[in-house]
């Protein structure tokens, strides 16, 4: 177990996190488009995409909430060793990671204030697959419309209605990710 905790981080931190961030940035700028992101090999059940995202963005200043089956001793130890994050409950988290049902309910997460809407949580939703089907997305970053498989529609509609407050989402599957910021409008295709 010890070696599993020490392994699986970035071997070349500045370069690998720069590449991972480019994927995260592109995804957030173009909601619904799927990007490759890799570099981290975290302990199960965390996906390489979610692991790479956390290694790139999380540090001692960003509490992380591990939802449901993602809250394992191995994963806690791995995250703390590689990033130094405090593990925190939903209410305090800057990042939360887990499957959709484990991450619910959305109410407790920080959604920012009217003066500081950026002080809000980013949820990393682990999904089985990312497909260009299901929900129809429109809004900033999307020229006309884009399709993305979403676990539900209504929670994202309610989240978008809070704008400029609200949560931002990454969906991760294997070594791929897509994003859904609070600005994106979702409807059934």
């Amino acid at each position: 177990m010890a070696s599993q905790i020490l392994d699986g981080g970035f071997s070349d931190v500045p370069v690998q996190s720069a590449r991972a961030f480019r994927a995260a940035l592109s995804a957030m700028a173009r909601p619904g488009r799927v990007y490759d992101i890799s570099g981290a090999m975290p302990p199960a059940p965390l996906s390489p995409a979610a692991g790479s995202l956390l290694l790139t963005l999380a540090d001692p200043g960003t509490p992380v909430f591990l939802a449901g089956a993602h809250d394992t001793p191995e994963l806690r130890a791995w995250l703390i060793f590689h990033t130094g994050v405090p593990i925190a409950p939903r209410e305090e988290a800057a990042f939360a990671v887990g499957t959709w049902t484990e991450l619910l309910p959305l109410e407790p997460y920080r959604k920012g204030t009217p003066e500081y809407p950026d002080r809000s949580a980013t949820l990393i939703v682990e999904v089985a697959t990312l497909a260009a089907s299901g929900a129809r997305l429109t809004g900033p970053g999307i020229e006309t419309a884009r399709m993305l498989s979403l676990p539900e529609l209504e929670p994202f509609r309610r989240n978008a209605a809070l704008f400029p407050r609200g949560l931002d989402f990454y969906f991760t599957a294997g070594a791929r990710l897509a994003a859904l910021p609070r600005t994106t409008k979702v409807e059934a295709a």
Binding site: L25, A29, R182, T183
Partner: peptide, 9 residues
């Protein structure tokens, strides 16, 4: 992190 929140808002 600031850039990502900037894109989201």
């Amino acid at each position: 992190r600031a850039l990502l929140k900037g894109l989201a808002i």
